[in-house]
Computed example of a mutant assay.
Amino acid sequence: MIATRIGTKLRGLAMGAVLAGSAAVMATPSMAEDWSGQVTLYGWGAGVTGDFTPFSGAPTLSFDKSLSEVLEDLDGAFFVTGLARRGDLVLFGDYTYSASSRSGVVGGAIPAAGELTIQSLTLAGGRRIDVGGGGTLDVLAGLRAWGLEGSVTSPVANLAPEQSFVDPIVALRSLTPVSDRVSVLAYLDVGGFGVGSEFTWLGTVTANYQATDSVYISAGWRHLYVDYAEGGTAFEGAMTGPVIGATLRF
């Protein structure tokens, strides 16, 4: 139910992101080549870390920051990325889902339980640069659409606010071959700039093994941060943790 409600919001936000991402790459020259692409699905051992205030005057729910406690709070997390390329034209997409829950005591004596579900959809486009030795660097710009749904339940209040917003982002994505079958992929973007959130950034590093001509296995680490406050709802925190996934190239 949570994923369905936020997913409906993100579909509307995604339309604007698609248009902006397309505009960002219309001026990018590309060679007369066929399209190629890839899709990667990851399992993500990432819970929410940070502080969440669902409503002005409501208790703040803090999620733990050690990895063992993060995984204890975690209800579920995954993400999927996709990339399409023609010549030096690159289109990139990323969808993230994470749900965490926490219970404890707030205000020194009030028992409370809370849940926080975060979804994000990143769409960007830009240009690929050949850096030599088989390595590439993608320079990208686009948008990240967010959906936040939280709840805090206590003897004094039951609150369940929802927020959606869109951030502009700029990004770099690099691929570095290590051997014939092993490579390292690094991705970093920054955004927000007070447009949607105050600030957001996403970083991912994975080691990748080519199992077949079209299938790759990856493992690494991913961290997604956002600092957002609007209408009494505030969240400053991140989803962070190890990832393992599989990529299909076509």
Results as ranks from 00 to 15, higher is better:
W146D: 08
W146I: 02
G147A: 07
L148K: 01
L148Q: 07
E149K: 03
G150P: 04
G150R: 01
S151A: 04
V152H: 01
T153F: 04
S154D: 04
V156R: 02
N158M: 10
N158E: 10
L159F: 11
A160N: 09
P161G: 02
E162Y: 11
Q163V: 10
Q163M: 08
S164I: 10
S164V: 12
F165W: 14
D167H: 10
D167I: 11
D167A: 06
P168E: 05
P168R: 09
P168Y: 09
I169F: 06
I169M: 15
I169E: 00
L172E: 06
L172P: 03
S174V: 13
S174I: 08
S174F: 14
L175D: 09
L175C: 12
P177M: 11
P177N: 06
P177F: 08
D180F: 08
D180L: 13
D180V: 11
D180I: 06
V182F: 06
V182P: 03
S183V: 03
V184C: 07
L185E: 10
A186F: 06
D189H: 11
G191V: 05
G191R: 04
G191T: 04
G194F: 10
S197K: 00
S197D: 08
E198V: 15
F199E: 12
F199Y: 12
T200V: 07
W201Y: 08
W201C: 07
W201F: 05
W201G: 05
G203L: 10
T204P: 00
V205A: 15
T206N: 01
Y209K: 00
Y209H: 10
Q210E: 09
A211T: 14
A211I: 12
T212N: 05
T212P: 05
T212L: 06
D213L: 15
S214P: 03
S214A: 06
Y216L: 13
I217A: 05
I217Q: 02
I217W: 01
S218F: 07
S218P: 13
S218Y: 09
S218D: 15
S218K: 09
G220I: 02
G220P: 04
